[in-house]
């Protein structure tokens, strides 16, 4: 069977239901690496790039949210209107790979792979994004924290296609930062997204746990110690960083050590919480 090229969501979900176990292809930046190195041998492939429902984003002004289709490439998040609406996502998108990778790679693929190092994932987590899943004639909404269940594991059913995510548009400061061995083309050693949304501080961490982590203690501490104007004193920022380090659950692997990751993620959190104040 050739690569299937559905041109609508209903066609795509029908094809997936008719070919159980088919491999879904978005930008290919994770999948093709596995195929090139013989780690995956797809038999049936459904390419999602021509499905308009997955390739668009839209603003819901009344709800104060944006929907981003799962196959929208990072390139479209880096700048322009979407970047204004969700600046932390723009910052995260800009750190992904290289321009060639960002022209192809997508949030659907990041969620599909579900690596704890996926750069869009801490942003989705900090903003309590909703993941929309579609199967024949039905859709299902899952909070992103329930979608990501472990390292490279998510709660998508075999017959479901990730339709997209819904995020709140910014109503406070937010930012994303990542540590790696160089500026471009690097998988993160530690990363963090900070957002002040609806007046409450949120922090989500990447690469320091089996999946992306939120830090409830650090968040609670900060909400009790934010100045009336939302600013953060040096001492509070430092303690916030310390609490974030404590709540991280890093491991040693080929990219870094647990000790360094724990330190780095605290520094990122401390910087982000103050960096935001000036912007």
């Amino acid at each position: 069977m050739p690569v299937l090229l559905p041109t609508s969501l209903s066609e795509a979900t029908q094809m997936l239901s008719d070919t159980p176990g088919a491999t879904l292809l978005a930008g290919g930046t994770d999948l093709m690496v596995e195929v090139n190195f013989n780690h995956r041998k797809p038999n049936d492939v459904i390419a999602l790039r021509h499905v308009p429902e997955l390739s668009q984003w839209s603003l819901n002004k009344v709800a104060g949210t944006v929907f981003i289709g799962s196959a929208v490439p990072y390139k479209h998040m880096e700048s322009g209107e979407l970047a204004q609406l969700v600046p932390a996502l723009a910052q995260a998108a800009r750190t992904v790979g290289s321009p060639q990778i960002r022209a192809a790679g997508s949030i659907g693929g990041n969620l599909g792979t579900c690596s704890p190092a996926g750069d869009s994932l801490p942003v989705l987590s900090a903003l309590d994004a909703i993941v929309h899943l579609a199967s024949v004639n039905t859709t299902r909404d899952v909070p992103v924290s329930d979608f990501m269940v472990g390292p490279k594991r998510n709660s998508r059913e075999q017959n479901e296609i990730i339709l997209g995510v819904t995020l709140p548009i910014r109503n406070g400061r937010q930012g994303y930062a990542k540590v790696g061995v160089r500026n471009a083309m690097v998988i993160s050693v530690a990363s963090a997204c900070f957002a002040l949304q609806d007046g409450s501080p949120r922090i989500a961490l990447g690469s320091v746990g089996p999946t992306v982590l939120r830090c409830p203690h650090a968040e609670q501490f900060l909400s009790q110690n934010l100045a009336a104007d939302g600013s953060v004193s040096d001492d509070v920022a430092k303690e916030f960083g310390r609490l974030v380090s404590q709540e991280s659950k890093p491991i040693d692997d080929h990219r870094s050590t647990a000790v360094y990751r724990r330190h780095a993620v605290g520094v990122l959190a401390q910087r982000l919480v103050q960096r935001g104040v000036q912007s």
Partner: peptide, 13 residues
């Protein structure tokens, strides 16, 4: 018109 890595494009797609 997009600049991409051809090693990551599935040709048949």
């Amino acid at each position: 018109g997009e600049s991409v890595c051809s090693c990551l494009v599935m040709a048949a797609s």
